[in-house]
């Protein structure tokens, strides 16, 4: 029998539904954005080319700043949420699960701020790039 009095139905939220939808939509966007990023930065040229002057020249264009910002936001949140789902599955102790999930989002938030602020605020020094 469904919903007996001794085990009341848990209050449901749409969080997992939104999480599922986000993973599908961000995944589809990342499929395109990340493969282009890898093709440009890692495959079609040696990584030795990617130095300070290269980054400064690239970020001279607002288009690439936005591209990298979207890639950072979608990729990092997709990755963190994936780790959350894996931890929900594999960590059986509720205490550890809660502790590590809180730590995950704390470290995740700090790194997101670090990454976003450098993309926003970077200014090439005169003469470089």
């Amino acid at each position: 029998m469904l919903g007996s009095a001794s085990s009341p139905r848990p209050r449901t939220t749409n969080f997992e539904l939104w999480s599922w939808l986000f993973m599908r939509v961000s995944g589809a966007l990342l499929l395109i954005l990340l493969l282009i990023h890898l093709a440009i930065m890692h495959v079609t040229q040696p990584i030795e080319n990617v130095n300070f002057a290269f980054v400064a020249a690239r970020w001279a264009s607002p288009l690439w700043r936005w591209y990298d910002l979207v890639l950072l936001g979608l990729g990092w949140v997709h990755g963190l949420n994936g780790v959350r789902v894996v931890m929900d599955d594999w960590i059986h102790s509720p205490g550890w699960r809660l502790t590590l999930t809180a730590l995950l989002w704390l470290i995740g938030f700090i790194l997101l701020v670090i990454g976003a602020q450098v993309i926003f605020s970077f200014q090439a020094p005169a003469g470089a790039g």
Binding site: F52, V55, W76, G115, Q117, F122
Partner: peptide
């Protein structure tokens, strides 16, 4: 899952290395 965990681990490092660009050419290079 294994590939996803590997990628997110690298992405964390990659955020930190790219943030060094804010400290100038000698540090980043």
């Amino acid at each position: 899952r294994i590939t996803g965990l590997g990628i997110v681990f690298f992405l964390g490092l990659h955020i930190l290395d790219t943030s060094l660009v804010g400290f100038g050419p000698s540090v980043y290079n």
